[in-house]
């Protein structure tokens, strides 16, 4: 567990930089460009988890760290820890397909859970609709918006490795608050049940699905009722 700093073959280091779900402001982008030049950065790499890797000489790390924090960004995390949240830009202002403001929810998830110690990698992906551009089925904890403040939660996915696994539905029609509570629940069960360095998908295979099921009353308290629609009212208004 530690910062996302990776020694490269050539001796330089790659440093992962995390923004709010991969979205950078022009100021942050310009600040990063200045830092890249100042720090003799040989290249910047965009990652599949929406982070940016700076390839720099090791001695430049303290300056990069300070500069990144000054831009409102942070150094990524690596190892047995909850990683940065991968999310789509679904909000009231951005992606038109998004069914809920997942960008905001993902920001809260990242602020609250990133860097929390866990038995092995724990990746969270959030998608604003069932198209799932952020591959929520391939995450340890995948969230898919199904309506306004209504989400389905999938757990136990793993995108990489020789044996990729799709996550399984844990709960549906859960509010944003419920997503936070269920993540706490899943992390607590994972901590309790996992063997050292065991990925969640393997814990689920070994310990079974049952211990991860949230209690019925907990589920009910966060479960959305049938999606409200004012269409019927609209339809009836048109009738004399």
């Amino acid at each position: 567990m530690g910062d996302a700093i990776f020694l490269q073959k050539s001796g330089i280091i790659g440093v992962g930089i995390v923004a709010n779900c991969g979205v950078l402001s022009p100021q942050q982008l310009m600040g990063l460009a200045r830092l890249a030049q100042e720090l003799e950065c040989t290249a910047c790499k965009l990652t599949t988890r929406q982070t940016l890797i700076f390839l720099i000489p090791e001695e430049k790390l303290p300056v990069l760290r300070e500069g990144v924090e000054g831009l409102g960004l942070r150094i990524g995390v690596f190892g047995e820890t909850v990683r940065n949240v991968k999310a789509c830009a679904g909000s009231s202002e951005l992606c038109q397909r998004s069914l809920s403001d997942v960008f905001r929810l993902a920001g809260i998830l990242q602020d609250r859970f990133m860097n929390r110690p866990v038995p092995n990698d724990f990746k969270i992906s959030v998608a604003g609709c069932h198209r799932g551009c952020t591959e929520p089925f391939c995450a340890d904890f995948g969230v898919v918006a199904t309506g306004e403040d209504s989400f389905s939660i999938y757990i136990g996915g793993r995108g990489a490795s020789r044996k990729p696994i799709h996550g399984r539905l844990l709960a549906e029609k859960i509010s944003g608050e419920g997503v936070l509570a269920l993540l706490e629940h899943v992390l607590a069960r994972y901590q309790e049940l996992a063997q050292p360095k065991e990925r969640l998908c393997h814990t689920l295979q070994r310990a079974g699905w049952e211990p991860f099921q949230p209690p019925a009353d907990m589920l009910a308290s966060f479960q959305q009722q049938e999606e409200e629609s004012d269409f019927l009212q609209f339809l009836n208004q048109t009738t004399p």
Binding site: E227, F234, L235, N236, T238, T239, P240
Partner: peptide, 27 residues
């Protein structure tokens, strides 16, 4: 009576989509 007419209903679906800027009508 648009609620009881297939044509009136479809007109209302389109009016709703336009008025509410919505592409989905739950159920």
């Amino acid at each position: 009576d648009k609620a009881r007419c297939l044509i009136g209903f479809t007109q209302t679906v389109m009016d709703y989509a336009r008025a509410k800027n919505a592409v989905r009508i739950p159920r």
